[in-house]
Design a protein around this nucleic acid. Structure first.
Lengths: 187, 187
DNA sequence: CTTGACAGACCGACTGGTCGGTTTTAGTCT
DNA sequence: AGACTAAAACCGACCAGTCGGTCTGTCAAG
Protein backbone atom coordinates (compact mmCIF):
# COMPACT_ATOMS: atom_id res chain seq x y z
CA UNK A 1 0.00 0.00 0.00
CA UNK A 2 1.62 3.14 -1.23
CA UNK A 3 0.53 5.69 1.26
CA UNK A 4 1.77 8.74 -0.51
CA UNK A 5 0.16 7.86 -3.83
CA UNK A 6 -3.07 7.07 -2.08
CA UNK A 7 -3.04 10.35 -0.28
CA UNK A 8 -2.43 12.08 -3.56
CA UNK A 9 -5.21 10.19 -5.23
CA UNK A 10 -7.56 10.86 -2.36
CA UNK A 11 -6.84 14.56 -2.58
CA UNK A 12 -7.64 14.57 -6.27
CA UNK A 13 -10.82 12.58 -5.79
CA UNK A 14 -11.98 14.88 -3.02
CA UNK A 15 -11.37 17.88 -5.23
CA UNK A 16 -13.24 16.28 -8.12
CA UNK A 17 -16.12 15.47 -5.81
CA UNK A 18 -16.25 19.01 -4.53
CA UNK A 19 -16.34 20.37 -8.05
CA UNK A 20 -18.97 17.88 -9.05
CA UNK A 21 -21.21 18.97 -6.21
CA UNK A 22 -20.60 22.63 -6.80
CA UNK A 23 -20.79 22.98 -10.56
CA UNK A 24 -22.07 19.71 -11.97
CA UNK A 25 -20.53 17.20 -14.30
CA UNK A 26 -20.27 19.46 -17.31
CA UNK A 27 -17.79 21.78 -15.71
CA UNK A 28 -15.70 19.01 -14.25
CA UNK A 29 -12.62 19.44 -16.41
CA UNK A 30 -9.21 17.97 -15.83
CA UNK A 31 -7.69 21.41 -15.46
CA UNK A 32 -10.19 22.47 -12.83
CA UNK A 33 -9.77 19.27 -10.87
CA UNK A 34 -6.03 19.72 -10.89
CA UNK A 35 -6.35 23.32 -9.78
CA UNK A 36 -8.86 22.50 -7.05
CA UNK A 37 -6.61 19.73 -5.77
CA UNK A 38 -3.57 22.01 -5.84
CA UNK A 39 -1.86 19.73 -8.31
CA UNK A 40 -0.55 20.16 -11.80
CA UNK A 41 -2.33 18.60 -14.71
CA UNK A 42 0.60 16.32 -15.27
CA UNK A 43 0.31 15.08 -11.73
CA UNK A 44 -3.33 14.34 -12.23
CA UNK A 45 -2.89 12.46 -15.47
CA UNK A 46 -0.09 10.53 -13.86
CA UNK A 47 -2.53 8.96 -11.41
CA UNK A 48 -5.59 8.88 -13.62
CA UNK A 49 -4.73 8.00 -17.15
CA UNK A 50 -7.89 9.43 -18.62
CA UNK A 51 -11.08 11.15 -17.65
CA UNK A 52 -13.12 7.95 -17.57
CA UNK A 53 -10.43 6.59 -15.30
CA UNK A 54 -10.92 9.51 -12.95
CA UNK A 55 -14.66 8.97 -13.04
CA UNK A 56 -14.21 5.34 -12.19
CA UNK A 57 -12.14 6.32 -9.18
CA UNK A 58 -14.83 8.75 -8.17
CA UNK A 59 -17.51 6.12 -8.53
CA UNK A 60 -15.56 3.64 -6.44
CA UNK A 61 -15.13 6.22 -3.72
CA UNK A 62 -18.83 7.01 -3.68
CA UNK A 63 -19.83 3.37 -3.58
CA UNK A 64 -17.51 2.82 -0.65
CA UNK A 65 -19.01 5.83 1.12
CA UNK A 66 -22.53 4.57 0.53
CA UNK A 67 -21.68 1.17 1.94
CA UNK A 68 -20.13 2.80 4.98
CA UNK A 69 -23.22 4.87 5.62
CA UNK A 70 -25.38 1.82 5.18
CA UNK A 71 -23.34 -0.11 7.70
CA UNK A 72 -23.63 2.77 10.13
CA UNK A 73 -27.39 2.93 9.80
CA UNK A 74 -27.62 -0.83 10.06
CA UNK A 75 -25.81 -0.74 13.37
CA UNK A 76 -28.48 1.57 14.73
CA UNK A 77 -31.32 -0.72 13.82
CA UNK A 78 -32.50 -3.02 16.62
CA UNK A 79 -31.41 -6.54 15.92
CA UNK A 80 -33.51 -9.63 15.47
CA UNK A 81 -36.20 -7.81 13.54
CA UNK A 82 -36.94 -8.61 9.91
CA UNK A 83 -36.36 -5.71 7.52
CA UNK A 84 -33.39 -4.22 9.34
CA UNK A 85 -31.37 -3.63 6.21
CA UNK A 86 -34.34 -2.27 4.31
CA UNK A 87 -34.96 0.29 7.03
CA UNK A 88 -31.27 1.12 7.24
CA UNK A 89 -31.28 1.71 3.51
CA UNK A 90 -34.29 4.00 3.68
CA UNK A 91 -32.73 5.88 6.56
CA UNK A 92 -29.62 6.43 4.49
CA UNK A 93 -31.70 8.04 1.80
CA UNK A 94 -33.58 10.15 4.29
CA UNK A 95 -30.39 11.32 5.95
CA UNK A 96 -28.96 12.22 2.58
CA UNK A 97 -32.02 14.30 1.80
CA UNK A 98 -32.11 15.95 5.21
CA UNK A 99 -28.47 16.96 4.97
CA UNK A 100 -29.07 18.53 1.60
CA UNK A 101 -26.70 16.03 0.07
CA UNK A 102 -29.27 14.79 -2.38
CA UNK A 103 -28.97 17.89 -4.49
CA UNK A 104 -25.22 17.77 -4.34
CA UNK A 105 -25.34 14.26 -5.74
CA UNK A 106 -26.84 15.73 -8.88
CA UNK A 107 -23.50 16.05 -10.61
CA UNK A 108 -22.61 12.50 -9.77
CA UNK A 109 -25.80 11.04 -11.17
CA UNK A 110 -25.35 13.22 -14.19
CA UNK A 111 -21.97 11.63 -14.67
CA UNK A 112 -23.39 8.18 -14.16
CA UNK A 113 -26.04 8.74 -16.79
CA UNK A 114 -23.53 10.18 -19.21
CA UNK A 115 -21.26 7.17 -18.99
CA UNK A 116 -23.38 4.06 -18.66
CA UNK A 117 -20.54 1.74 -19.55
CA UNK A 118 -18.78 3.06 -16.49
CA UNK A 119 -21.64 2.00 -14.26
CA UNK A 120 -21.72 -1.37 -15.95
CA UNK A 121 -18.24 -2.00 -14.59
CA UNK A 122 -19.38 -1.47 -11.03
CA UNK A 123 -22.88 -2.80 -11.42
CA UNK A 124 -22.07 -5.91 -9.46
CA UNK A 125 -21.07 -3.96 -6.39
CA UNK A 126 -24.19 -1.84 -6.49
CA UNK A 127 -26.52 -4.76 -7.00
CA UNK A 128 -25.14 -6.46 -3.94
CA UNK A 129 -27.09 -4.00 -1.85
CA UNK A 130 -30.30 -4.74 -3.71
CA UNK A 131 -29.73 -8.46 -3.36
CA UNK A 132 -29.10 -8.08 0.35
CA UNK A 133 -32.29 -6.10 0.81
CA UNK A 134 -34.24 -8.88 -0.80
CA UNK A 135 -32.87 -11.32 1.75
CA UNK A 136 -33.65 -9.16 4.70
CA UNK A 137 -36.33 -11.30 6.21
CA UNK A 138 -39.19 -9.53 4.48
CA UNK A 139 -41.03 -10.64 1.43
CA UNK A 140 -38.50 -9.86 -1.34
CA UNK A 141 -40.97 -8.01 -3.53
CA UNK A 142 -42.17 -5.87 -0.66
CA UNK A 143 -38.62 -5.09 0.37
CA UNK A 144 -37.72 -4.08 -3.17
CA UNK A 145 -40.78 -1.90 -3.39
CA UNK A 146 -39.92 -0.15 -0.13
CA UNK A 147 -36.37 0.52 -1.28
CA UNK A 148 -37.60 1.74 -4.64
CA UNK A 149 -40.07 4.09 -3.00
CA UNK A 150 -37.29 5.56 -0.92
CA UNK A 151 -35.20 5.93 -4.05
CA UNK A 152 -38.09 7.64 -5.76
CA UNK A 153 -38.32 10.28 -3.06
CA UNK A 154 -34.59 10.77 -3.27
CA UNK A 155 -34.85 11.23 -7.00
CA UNK A 156 -37.64 13.77 -6.73
CA UNK A 157 -35.44 15.87 -4.49
CA UNK A 158 -32.43 15.28 -6.71
CA UNK A 159 -34.22 16.56 -9.76
CA UNK A 160 -35.41 19.62 -7.95
CA UNK A 161 -39.04 18.59 -8.06
CA UNK A 162 -39.40 18.27 -4.33
CA UNK A 163 -37.83 20.62 -1.89
CA UNK A 164 -35.65 18.84 0.69
CA UNK A 165 -37.96 20.27 3.33
CA UNK A 166 -41.06 19.12 1.51
CA UNK A 167 -43.27 17.46 4.14
CA UNK A 168 -43.85 14.60 1.71
CA UNK A 169 -40.30 13.44 2.33
CA UNK A 170 -40.85 12.85 6.02
CA UNK A 171 -44.40 11.58 5.81
CA UNK A 172 -43.72 9.12 3.03
CA UNK A 173 -40.63 7.91 4.85
CA UNK A 174 -42.59 7.40 8.04
CA UNK A 175 -45.24 5.50 6.12
CA UNK A 176 -42.63 3.27 4.50
CA UNK A 177 -40.94 2.58 7.81
CA UNK A 178 -44.24 1.61 9.37
CA UNK A 179 -45.05 -0.57 6.41
CA UNK A 180 -41.73 -2.37 6.74
CA UNK A 181 -42.54 -3.29 10.32
CA UNK A 182 -45.90 -4.82 9.63
CA UNK A 183 -44.78 -6.27 6.31
CA UNK A 184 -45.14 -9.91 5.54
CA UNK A 185 -42.20 -12.02 6.54
CA UNK A 186 -40.54 -14.12 3.90
CA UNK A 187 -41.81 -17.68 3.66
CA UNK B 1 -51.01 29.57 -36.27
CA UNK B 2 -48.01 29.36 -38.51
CA UNK B 3 -48.14 25.80 -39.63
CA UNK B 4 -44.88 25.73 -41.45
CA UNK B 5 -42.85 27.25 -38.65
CA UNK B 6 -44.31 24.77 -36.21
CA UNK B 7 -43.49 21.95 -38.51
CA UNK B 8 -39.94 23.20 -38.71
CA UNK B 9 -39.64 23.45 -34.97
CA UNK B 10 -41.18 20.04 -34.51
CA UNK B 11 -38.69 18.57 -36.93
CA UNK B 12 -35.80 20.10 -35.02
CA UNK B 13 -37.14 18.92 -31.68
CA UNK B 14 -37.66 15.41 -32.99
CA UNK B 15 -34.11 15.36 -34.28
CA UNK B 16 -32.78 16.63 -30.97
CA UNK B 17 -34.77 14.00 -29.11
CA UNK B 18 -33.44 11.27 -31.39
CA UNK B 19 -29.89 12.40 -30.80
CA UNK B 20 -30.48 12.65 -27.08
CA UNK B 21 -31.70 9.09 -26.95
CA UNK B 22 -28.95 7.78 -29.16
CA UNK B 23 -25.86 9.54 -27.88
CA UNK B 24 -26.77 11.28 -24.66
CA UNK B 25 -26.79 14.91 -23.66
CA UNK B 26 -23.09 15.48 -23.98
CA UNK B 27 -23.01 14.90 -27.69
CA UNK B 28 -26.10 16.95 -28.36
CA UNK B 29 -24.49 19.83 -30.19
CA UNK B 30 -26.20 22.46 -32.23
CA UNK B 31 -24.42 21.33 -35.37
CA UNK B 32 -25.50 17.74 -34.93
CA UNK B 33 -29.09 18.69 -34.25
CA UNK B 34 -29.12 20.82 -37.37
CA UNK B 35 -27.62 18.03 -39.42
CA UNK B 36 -30.00 15.41 -38.03
CA UNK B 37 -32.95 17.64 -38.76
CA UNK B 38 -31.72 18.36 -42.26
CA UNK B 39 -31.47 22.04 -41.47
CA UNK B 40 -28.66 24.50 -41.47
CA UNK B 41 -27.27 25.79 -38.25
CA UNK B 42 -28.55 29.23 -39.04
CA UNK B 43 -32.03 27.86 -39.46
CA UNK B 44 -31.81 26.19 -36.10
CA UNK B 45 -30.61 29.25 -34.25
CA UNK B 46 -33.33 31.21 -35.93
CA UNK B 47 -35.98 29.20 -34.13
CA UNK B 48 -34.06 28.51 -30.94
CA UNK B 49 -31.99 31.47 -29.89
CA UNK B 50 -29.66 29.49 -27.69
CA UNK B 51 -28.98 26.00 -26.51
CA UNK B 52 -30.90 26.42 -23.25
CA UNK B 53 -33.75 27.65 -25.40
CA UNK B 54 -33.65 24.45 -27.42
CA UNK B 55 -33.56 22.43 -24.23
CA UNK B 56 -36.59 24.25 -22.94
CA UNK B 57 -38.45 23.40 -26.11
CA UNK B 58 -37.41 19.80 -25.69
CA UNK B 59 -38.58 19.74 -22.10
CA UNK B 60 -41.94 21.21 -23.01
CA UNK B 61 -42.41 18.59 -25.67
CA UNK B 62 -41.60 15.80 -23.28
CA UNK B 63 -43.91 17.11 -20.60
CA UNK B 64 -46.72 17.31 -23.12
CA UNK B 65 -46.03 13.73 -24.19
CA UNK B 66 -46.05 12.53 -20.62
CA UNK B 67 -49.37 14.20 -19.94
CA UNK B 68 -50.80 12.63 -23.07
CA UNK B 69 -49.67 9.17 -22.04
CA UNK B 70 -51.07 9.73 -18.58
CA UNK B 71 -54.44 10.72 -19.99
CA UNK B 72 -54.42 7.64 -22.18
CA UNK B 73 -53.71 5.33 -19.27
CA UNK B 74 -56.27 7.12 -17.16
CA UNK B 75 -58.95 6.43 -19.75
CA UNK B 76 -58.24 2.73 -19.44
CA UNK B 77 -58.74 2.65 -15.70
CA UNK B 78 -62.23 1.66 -14.57
CA UNK B 79 -64.04 4.67 -13.24
CA UNK B 80 -65.46 5.26 -9.80
CA UNK B 81 -62.56 3.58 -8.06
CA UNK B 82 -60.21 5.50 -5.78
CA UNK B 83 -56.60 5.57 -6.94
CA UNK B 84 -57.34 5.67 -10.66
CA UNK B 85 -54.77 8.33 -11.42
CA UNK B 86 -52.16 6.70 -9.22
CA UNK B 87 -52.55 3.44 -11.08
CA UNK B 88 -52.52 5.22 -14.43
CA UNK B 89 -49.30 6.92 -13.42
CA UNK B 90 -47.68 3.66 -12.40
CA UNK B 91 -48.83 2.05 -15.64
CA UNK B 92 -47.20 4.86 -17.58
CA UNK B 93 -43.91 4.09 -15.91
CA UNK B 94 -44.29 0.38 -16.49
CA UNK B 95 -45.12 0.89 -20.15
CA UNK B 96 -42.12 3.12 -20.54
CA UNK B 97 -39.88 0.46 -19.05
CA UNK B 98 -41.43 -2.35 -21.07
CA UNK B 99 -40.95 -0.46 -24.31
CA UNK B 100 -37.32 0.11 -23.53
CA UNK B 101 -37.98 3.82 -23.42
CA UNK B 102 -36.66 4.19 -19.91
CA UNK B 103 -33.07 3.82 -21.08
CA UNK B 104 -33.64 6.19 -23.94
CA UNK B 105 -34.78 8.80 -21.43
CA UNK B 106 -31.28 8.72 -19.98
CA UNK B 107 -30.09 11.60 -22.11
CA UNK B 108 -33.08 13.67 -21.18
CA UNK B 109 -32.63 13.20 -17.45
CA UNK B 110 -28.96 13.92 -17.90
CA UNK B 111 -29.96 17.21 -19.46
CA UNK B 112 -32.41 17.94 -16.70
CA UNK B 113 -29.78 17.35 -14.05
CA UNK B 114 -27.24 19.45 -15.89
CA UNK B 115 -29.56 22.44 -16.09
CA UNK B 116 -31.59 22.63 -12.90
CA UNK B 117 -32.69 26.19 -13.53
CA UNK B 118 -34.34 24.90 -16.66
CA UNK B 119 -36.44 22.48 -14.67
CA UNK B 120 -37.30 25.22 -12.23
CA UNK B 121 -39.08 27.03 -15.04
CA UNK B 122 -41.34 24.07 -15.69
CA UNK B 123 -41.57 22.81 -12.14
CA UNK B 124 -45.13 23.97 -11.79
CA UNK B 125 -46.35 21.87 -14.69
CA UNK B 126 -44.59 18.78 -13.42
CA UNK B 127 -45.84 19.17 -9.88
CA UNK B 128 -49.42 19.34 -11.07
CA UNK B 129 -49.25 15.61 -11.65
CA UNK B 130 -47.99 14.99 -8.14
CA UNK B 131 -50.69 17.20 -6.69
CA UNK B 132 -53.36 15.39 -8.67
CA UNK B 133 -52.13 12.01 -7.48
CA UNK B 134 -52.47 13.17 -3.91
CA UNK B 135 -56.12 14.00 -4.53
CA UNK B 136 -56.92 10.73 -6.14
CA UNK B 137 -59.20 9.37 -3.46
CA UNK B 138 -56.44 7.51 -1.64
CA UNK B 139 -54.63 8.59 1.45
CA UNK B 140 -52.27 11.28 0.07
CA UNK B 141 -49.18 9.87 1.73
CA UNK B 142 -49.89 6.38 0.48
CA UNK B 143 -50.53 7.66 -3.03
CA UNK B 144 -47.26 9.60 -3.01
CA UNK B 145 -45.41 6.55 -1.77
CA UNK B 146 -46.86 4.40 -4.52
CA UNK B 147 -45.90 6.90 -7.19
CA UNK B 148 -42.44 7.27 -5.72
CA UNK B 149 -41.95 3.51 -5.68
CA UNK B 150 -42.86 3.36 -9.33
CA UNK B 151 -40.45 6.18 -10.02
CA UNK B 152 -37.75 4.34 -8.13
CA UNK B 153 -38.11 1.27 -10.35
CA UNK B 154 -38.01 3.49 -13.38
CA UNK B 155 -34.84 5.09 -12.11
CA UNK B 156 -33.16 1.76 -11.45
CA UNK B 157 -33.75 0.81 -15.06
CA UNK B 158 -32.72 4.23 -16.25
CA UNK B 159 -29.40 4.03 -14.49
CA UNK B 160 -28.72 0.60 -15.89
CA UNK B 161 -28.95 -1.08 -12.51
CA UNK B 162 -31.97 -3.12 -13.39
CA UNK B 163 -32.48 -4.73 -16.72
CA UNK B 164 -35.81 -3.76 -18.33
CA UNK B 165 -36.67 -7.46 -18.29
CA UNK B 166 -35.72 -7.80 -14.64
CA UNK B 167 -38.56 -9.73 -12.99
CA UNK B 168 -38.47 -7.22 -10.16
CA UNK B 169 -40.04 -4.65 -12.45
CA UNK B 170 -43.18 -6.67 -13.01
CA UNK B 171 -43.45 -8.12 -9.54
CA UNK B 172 -42.98 -4.82 -7.75
CA UNK B 173 -45.46 -3.18 -10.09
CA UNK B 174 -48.03 -5.88 -9.46
CA UNK B 175 -47.50 -5.48 -5.73
CA UNK B 176 -47.96 -1.72 -5.93
CA UNK B 177 -51.08 -2.04 -8.03
CA UNK B 178 -52.58 -4.47 -5.54
CA UNK B 179 -51.63 -2.17 -2.68
CA UNK B 180 -53.35 0.73 -4.37
CA UNK B 181 -56.60 -1.21 -4.52
CA UNK B 182 -56.73 -2.13 -0.88
CA UNK B 183 -55.24 1.17 0.23
CA UNK B 184 -56.94 3.35 2.73
CA UNK B 185 -59.34 5.84 1.26
CA UNK B 186 -58.82 9.49 2.07
CA UNK B 187 -60.80 10.74 5.04
C1' DC C 1 22.10 6.03 -14.06
C1' DT C 2 17.49 4.54 -13.72
C1' DT C 3 12.90 5.03 -12.21
C1' DG C 4 8.76 6.84 -10.59
C1' DA C 5 6.35 11.23 -9.16
C1' DC C 6 5.11 15.34 -10.71
C1' DA C 7 5.17 19.88 -13.50
C1' DG C 8 3.29 22.64 -17.20
C1' DA C 9 3.51 24.07 -22.02
C1' DC C 10 1.31 22.65 -26.03
C1' DC C 11 -1.80 20.69 -29.75
C1' DG C 12 -5.73 19.21 -32.35
C1' DA C 13 -10.51 18.66 -32.12
C1' DC C 14 -14.69 20.52 -31.04
C1' DT C 15 -18.44 23.84 -29.50
C1' DG C 16 -21.77 27.65 -28.91
C1' DG C 17 -22.81 31.58 -30.87
C1' DT C 18 -22.39 35.43 -34.45
C1' DC C 19 -22.97 37.65 -38.79
C1' DG C 20 -23.48 38.95 -43.48
C1' DG C 21 -25.88 37.17 -47.14
C1' DT C 22 -29.73 34.60 -49.77
C1' DT C 23 -34.29 32.75 -50.46
C1' DT C 24 -39.14 32.44 -49.42
C1' DT C 25 -43.39 34.41 -47.91
C1' DA C 26 -46.98 37.85 -47.36
C1' DG C 27 -48.89 42.05 -47.97
C1' DT C 28 -49.82 46.23 -50.91
C1' DC C 29 -50.48 49.03 -54.72
C1' DT C 30 -51.58 49.50 -59.52
C1' DA D 1 -53.14 39.49 -62.17
C1' DG D 2 -48.56 41.31 -61.79
C1' DA D 3 -44.95 44.15 -59.85
C1' DC D 4 -42.77 45.73 -55.82
C1' DT D 5 -41.17 45.47 -51.12
C1' DA D 6 -40.33 44.50 -46.50
C1' DA D 7 -40.20 41.07 -43.18
C1' DA D 8 -39.40 36.56 -41.89
C1' DA D 9 -37.07 32.20 -42.73
C1' DC D 10 -33.01 30.16 -43.64
C1' DC D 11 -28.02 29.40 -44.84
C1' DG D 12 -23.10 28.31 -43.73
C1' DA D 13 -18.56 30.24 -43.03
C1' DC D 14 -16.27 31.92 -39.24
C1' DC D 15 -14.55 33.17 -34.49
C1' DA D 16 -13.04 32.88 -29.88
C1' DG D 17 -12.73 29.95 -26.40
C1' DT D 18 -12.52 25.27 -24.13
C1' DC D 19 -11.25 20.53 -23.37
C1' DG D 20 -8.87 16.03 -23.16
C1' DG D 21 -4.74 14.23 -23.83
C1' DT D 22 0.30 14.24 -25.09
C1' DC D 23 5.04 15.29 -24.51
C1' DT D 24 9.12 16.97 -22.81
C1' DG D 25 11.41 18.45 -18.69
C1' DT D 26 12.66 18.45 -13.61
C1' DC D 27 13.95 16.31 -9.48
C1' DA D 28 14.58 13.31 -5.69
C1' DA D 29 15.42 8.53 -4.19
C1' DG D 30 17.70 4.25 -4.71
Amino acid sequence: MTIKADHFKAKILAAAMALLERDGARSLTLDKVAQEAGVSKGGLTHHFKSKPDLFLGLLDMVIATIKDQLAEQLAREPKDAPGRLTRAYMNCNLTTIRNGEAQSMRGLIEMVLAMPDLVAKRRQGLLEVHAAIEQDGLDPVQASALAAASDGCWMNVLMGLWDPQDPRVESVHAYLMALSRKAEVAR
